[in-house]
Simulated scan of single mutants.
Amino acid sequence: MLKLYKRLFFVILLIGIISGAVIYYTVDINTFRHLSSFRIWSLAAVLFFLSVGLYFDGTRLMHLVRISGENISLMEAVQVVFGNYFLAALTPGAAGGALAQVLFLRRAGVPTGKATVLVVVRTILSILFLLLCMPVVFYYDPGVMPWISEDLLSVISSAVIISILATIWLLRKNTLAYFLVAFTKRLHYTRRRRVFSIYRDVRGAILMLSSAPLSMLRVFIESAISLLSLYSVVPTLFMGIGAEVNWLHVLGRMIFLNILLYFAPTPGGSGIAEGGFVVLFNEFVPSGTVGIVAVVWRMVAEYIPFVIGLYFTVKVFGRAFLASQIK
């Protein structure tokens, strides 16, 4: 139990330090003048987009579970979603989020094997949507990576799409297993077994994706609506402080930022998210406001769901069980 409290204290302290530093180093003499004209209606719009995003995150999980032959209620799906936010913020690389999802799905009556595959499918769908959007983002916003030429960005975009399709084909044919056998020969037995366990989960996810194309298309569309709604919080905040907003431009950069966050080594992407936001959006908002908007975005999109996830996790499993899962 003490370890859980220490982890919570560390995360809250980290969030406080990062948020304070971001605001401190980005404010200037114009900050309060711009904030004084903040439009209150934008807060209602922010909560609307957040609610839509979380709702479709829950419904896509319900439909995924149904494809696997099981059933869960919308409330159980919502608990999975918020539990993911909570444990992801407590663990480096958001690794705890996957554990939380499996635990809640098991609690809802989904067998462990299916729950693991469903979590992998849910993650793959989100990453797949973001990666498929990247060629469009690079084409319309080459300034997102100004140090790379447009021709090279086109090559990268094509390589991403080809790699996705090739990987899916190789997984379906089980061809990658032969390469894994060769590459893991010198690994310790435990590590080798873990590699093949991950491979089986991912392959099972790919097979599930191809098992019901029309149902999976529906889930993919729900994934897109969920992610784009959550990202729409940012341009709405920009409008709230009077900025001129190119909605698609902002969403494109949010897609790019969130791809990076999938590989962030810090708990919940803390620090990297705020820093990346300041770099990507400093030119979009009035002087001295980008740091405050970055912190508000993180509060709305991550920390509010984190607190709700904490409530559901303690309510469903109890503090003792939760503490036993925190390594």
Rank of each mutant, 00 (worst) to 15 (best):
residue 55 Y to R: 00
residue 125 L to A: 06
residue 224 A to E: 07
residue 94 A to M: 14
residue 224 A to T: 10
residue 244 E to R: 07
residue 215 S to G: 09
residue 222 E to H: 00
residue 10 F to G: 02
residue 34 H to T: 07
residue 207 L to S: 07
residue 178 Y to I: 12
residue 56 F to A: 01
residue 135 P to G: 10
residue 254 M to C: 13
residue 178 Y to V: 11
residue 203 R to V: 12
residue 191 R to Y: 14
residue 73 S to R: 04
residue 232 S to L: 10
residue 100 A to L: 03
residue 92 P to I: 11
residue 127 I to D: 04
residue 292 I to L: 14
residue 310 L to V: 09
residue 293 V to P: 02
residue 256 F to E: 14
residue 96 G to E: 11
residue 37 S to I: 13
residue 4 L to T: 08
residue 226 S to F: 06
residue 308 I to K: 06
residue 43 L to K: 00
residue 229 S to N: 05
residue 57 D to C: 04
residue 212 A to V: 10
residue 150 E to C: 01
residue 50 L to F: 13
residue 26 T to C: 05
residue 47 L to G: 02
residue 188 H to L: 13
residue 109 G to M: 07
residue 289 T to V: 13
residue 126 S to D: 13
residue 321 F to S: 11
residue 224 A to V: 14
residue 242 G to V: 09
residue 45 A to P: 00
residue 8 L to W: 04
residue 84 N to W: 08
residue 18 I to N: 02
residue 83 G to A: 13
residue 135 P to E: 09
residue 215 S to A: 14
residue 304 I to Y: 01
residue 271 G to H: 04
residue 144 V to K: 01
residue 79 Q to K: 14
residue 204 G to W: 04
residue 132 L to D: 00
residue 122 R to I: 06
residue 94 A to N: 11
residue 50 L to D: 04
residue 233 V to F: 02
residue 41 W to P: 00
residue 212 A to R: 08
residue 94 A to D: 06
residue 270 S to K: 01
residue 164 I to Y: 06
residue 322 L to A: 04
residue 314 V to Y: 04
residue 130 L to P: 00
residue 19 S to F: 11
residue 141 D to R: 05
residue 191 R to E: 14
residue 302 E to V: 14
residue 288 G to Y: 06
residue 104 F to V: 12
residue 227 L to K: 00
residue 168 I to T: 03
residue 9 F to A: 15
residue 34 H to P: 01
residue 218 R to V: 08
residue 156 I to N: 07
residue 244 E to H: 09
residue 167 T to S: 12
residue 95 A to Y: 09
residue 67 I to N: 02
residue 256 F to A: 15
residue 314 V to P: 00
residue 56 F to Y: 12
residue 93 G to K: 06
